[in-house]
Amino acid sequence: MAALSMPRSPAEAPHLGRLQRWMQACMMANGPVESAVETPAAVKEFPASQAPGLIRASRTLAPLERLDIYRGMYDLRLVEALRVDYPGLLKFLGEKTFEELARLYIASCPPESYTLNRLGDRLPDFLSQVDGIHRPGFVEALARLELAETFVFDEEESPVAAMESFGGLSEDQWGRLRLTPIRALRLLRLNYPAHEFMQAIRRDEALPSLRPRRTHLIVHRREYGLFHLSLSAPAFALFQALAERAPLDEAMQSMFDAGGGSQKQVFEWFRQWFSERLFSSVEIY
């Protein structure tokens, strides 16, 4: 006899499923409600001619007007969630363009997760599909930065390692050091210094120039505040290699390959990175 187990799903509800797929299709369709009920996804469940009959009229509203209330709220809620996650894009593009972009994005990438926090995860990649965006290179860099900030904001706390934890090591031990970054940290290579734009709008300062500049950035969290740390290409290569679990001697090779660095500079960078509390553990491999 097979082992007993609880059912993982209740019995099928075929008609209920049709009705739900129909209503959702109508909610997610662009355009007026009259055309929403005619979209292929809606018509697949119920012909447009039957749509008004699925919903009771109220004493003040016709059936499709009642459906339209849900359509309006869907749009408002999701656009608002993107405004919260992308305040820099909103500032740069302006209300009207941002909302147009948000609606295009939502139509193309409707929400799948139970949390709105991750609604905008695909927005930076989506931008490449949109025509007519002013300064598309900068916009993409800004979007990638803002997405990284949302991840850093929500990451788990990590213990913080002190630089003193590897004092007195031999040269051989130094080469075999492995440093693990804190979890609330992301590394970004951008073609524009988008962080300078973000800092300016947060401080309500004059906006910086939007000229392209290769930018190597650490986005990190300390005491629940978000910070940006701009690095040289060699320093970034070193940090990235360390973050990928390379021991220090290999990480330094990556640094040299990136065109620079010295032992003295590595020591100075370590002093800064440890004071910024960017590492959670130090091991000797």
Binding site: H15, L16, G17, L19, Q20, R21, M23, Q24, M27, M28, Y70, M73, Y74, R77, L78, A81, P110, P111, E112, S113, Y114, L116
Partner: peptide
């Protein structure tokens, strides 16, 4: 709140059947 793997992030009404 959603069907077919999507989530509308709204509290949608049930048909009471």
């Amino acid at each position: 709140t959603g069907v077919s793997g999507l989530n509308t992030h709204d509290l949608l009404p049930m048909p009471y059947t």
